[in-house]
Nucleic acid binder design. Sequence first.
DNA 1: GAGGCGGTGGCAGCAAGCTGCCATCGCGCC
DNA 2: GGCGCGATGGCAGCTTGCTGCCACCGCCTC
Lengths: 222, 222
Amino acid sequence: MTVDPDRNVTLRGERELVERAGHLLLSAEREFVCAAGDLKTWSMPGLRARIAGARHRTAPPLTVRKLFNPQVLDDEESRRHLAEVAARGAQVRICTTGLPHETILVDGRIAILAGPLVGGVRGYTVVRSPDVVRSVGSLFLAAWDAATELAEFRRTHPPVLGQESRRVLAMLGAGHKDEAAARELGLSLRTYRRRVAELMKLLDAGSRFEAGLRARELGLTG
Amino acid sequence: MTVDPDRNVTLRGERELVERAGHLLLSAEREFVCAAGDLKTWSMPGLRARIAGARHRTAPPLTVRKLFNPQVLDDEESRRHLAEVAARGAQVRICTTGLPHETILVDGRIAILAGPLVGGVRGYTVVRSPDVVRSVGSLFLAAWDAATELAEFRRTHPPVLGQESRRVLAMLGAGHKDEAAARELGLSLRTYRRRVAELMKLLDAGSRFEAGLRARELGLTG
DNA sequence: GAGGCGGTGGCAGCAAGCTGCCATCGCGCC
DNA sequence: GGCGCGATGGCAGCTTGCTGCCACCGCCTC
């Protein structure tokens, strides 16, 4: 890593990013900002835990802001992770406009911008030029302000269900047993239950009761 | 049965009522009106089916109005029966003020008024005097107009739940397994499930999913 | 045609839920 | 005390729901 703050450095692959810029991420004292289309880009095994650990040392509590596209809510693991992150005090928002590039901002001093995959490896450009970082920061802020709080988003944006899912929902809502419902929908018992399981994942429900609750809550019925 | 229209006849017990006044009930051509505190008074086995059958013969469709107190909604069998009756075209309303006496009105011509139990047998007085029947009719109409449609009533009057039922609901809504929920509430598994079963009866739900749906629908959560 | 891939469905085994039956216990009442 | 009544909880057996595993099928690609 050069000492010239106006020299951008591009690292290839997450491993190199972690090795050579990990300390930058850990150096956050005031604010840690992260924008990404999905959760995959910043997986960085092991680093998250160290960041989480580092937070305990900071005198002024670290402000953590995470901005994502709606598709992070598509799979259950991501939802669980987001919920956990939010529970630890991070602010999480969802932005319906496409996020340009995956971005990290540390204390308004350092920006790390992800590039496209090149030969299966993603490039990460570490930027320290104050003007560049500032303008990235203000772009982020604009997107952040336009985005909606995770909880609010989830409350007002029910997951989009296909035709079949809605028919499964109707069967469940009518109180039919699985066997009858499957027959009525022309599905095998196995497949019907697969659908129900998918639905429950989608609704973040641990039981059918809960699923019913949420289905009504999100206005997915009738 | 006397031919004098101004002579009231009191019949003792439902059997006698059915035997000697059953034909009056079946003679309804225009309107059949029934008000009762509960469904027990007019059980009259076999008669209902015959009334239902008779309706097919009537040239102008028979208007059926039934007025009940809220407690008919307390037990599941009554609810099912009411739903069935309503589905067959009867108008069903719920009246929150106590209904004075069980009453039947046939075509504005005949009134049958139930009295108290005497020696375990209820008396039924058949009235044909036009003035009396008219005034009973107008009293009924007043109560009818003040009452609310069954569907509307059920939508706006969620069943009153005890403290414990609400805690059971909370457990269900939190997605807990029965065992965990029972432990948390300090109940045995058996009793917890009894509570759940009661709750589901109360909510008219054939499955836990449905119960969740209704619970949210009736605003019984959070 | 070979092979991969996604969706389906049968099966089996387990987990969870449901309910009838009965013993028990507390409580009010005679 | 004796009795009945309602609530509780243990037990057992059954139903329902859940899921991993595997085989199969249709489709696409090479």
